[in-house]
Measured scan of single mutants.
Amino acid sequence: DNLVIALHSYEPSHDGDLGFEKGEQLRILEQSGEWWKAQSLTTGQEGFIPFNFVAKA
């Protein structure tokens, strides 16, 4: 599955970004460039995340 774990917390800075906490698990929905579309397994919310803040779970 496309699961990743957050290496750092991220505060959203643009509409459509997904904020998350360090250690949170996310499911990657789309990989494109440096911003990936993801869904939080904690909150169920979707949005874009910086790819370098996460690692394969």
Rank of each mutant, 00 (worst) to 15 (best):
D1C: 15
D1N: 11
D1T: 09
D1W: 12
D1K: 08
D1H: 11
N2T: 11
N2R: 09
L3M: 10
L3K: 04
V4E: 01
V4H: 08
V4T: 04
V4Y: 15
I5R: 06
I5Q: 04
A6F: 03
A6V: 06
A6P: 00
L7I: 11
L7E: 05
H8R: 15
H8G: 06
H8N: 08
S9P: 07
S9Y: 07
S9Q: 07
Y10E: 00
E11A: 13
E11I: 14
E11T: 15
P12V: 06
P12I: 06
P12H: 04
S13Q: 15
S13M: 15
S13N: 11
H14W: 10
H14K: 14
H14S: 11
H14I: 09
D15C: 14
D15H: 12
D15E: 13
G16E: 07
G16Q: 08
G16D: 09
G16Y: 10
G16A: 07
D17G: 13
D17Y: 15
D17S: 09
L18T: 01
L18Y: 04
L18C: 05
L18G: 02
G19L: 05
F20I: 06
F20R: 01
F20H: 00
F20M: 05
E21A: 13
K22G: 04
K22T: 06
G23L: 02
E24W: 03
E24Y: 02
Q25M: 15
Q25F: 15
Q25N: 08
L26Y: 01
L26T: 00
R27T: 05
I28R: 01
L29M: 07
L29A: 02
L29Q: 03
L29E: 00
E30V: 09
E30H: 08
E30L: 08
E30C: 14
Q31N: 11
Q31D: 10
Q31L: 06
S32C: 15
S32A: 11
S32V: 14
G33C: 07
G33K: 04
G33Y: 03
G33H: 04
G33I: 03
G33L: 03
E34V: 13
E34N: 13
W35K: 12
W35D: 03
W35M: 12
W35E: 05
W36L: 10
W36G: 04
W36P: 04
K37P: 02
K37R: 14
K37M: 12
K37A: 05
K37N: 05
K37Y: 15
A38W: 03
A38E: 01
Q39N: 02
Q39K: 11
Q39L: 10
S40I: 05
S40D: 02
S40H: 07
S40T: 03
L41C: 13
L41D: 02
T42L: 14
T42R: 14
T42Q: 10
T43K: 02
G44L: 09
G44A: 05
G44Y: 07
G44K: 07
G44F: 08
G44P: 01
G44C: 11
Q45M: 11
Q45I: 09
Q45A: 12
E46V: 15
G47P: 00
G47S: 01
F48T: 08
F48Q: 06
F48A: 05
F48E: 05
F48K: 10
I49D: 05
I49M: 01
I49N: 02
I49L: 04
I49G: 01
P50T: 10
P50G: 02
P50F: 07
P50A: 03
P50I: 08
P50D: 09
F51V: 11
F51Y: 14
N52I: 07
N52R: 09
N52Y: 13
F53G: 05
F53W: 10
F53D: 07
V54E: 05
V54M: 04
V54Q: 04
V54G: 03
V54A: 04
A55P: 03
A55L: 08
A55G: 09
A55V: 14
A55S: 10
K56G: 11
K56P: 14
K56W: 14
K56M: 12
K56H: 12
K56S: 12
A57D: 10
A57V: 15
A57W: 13
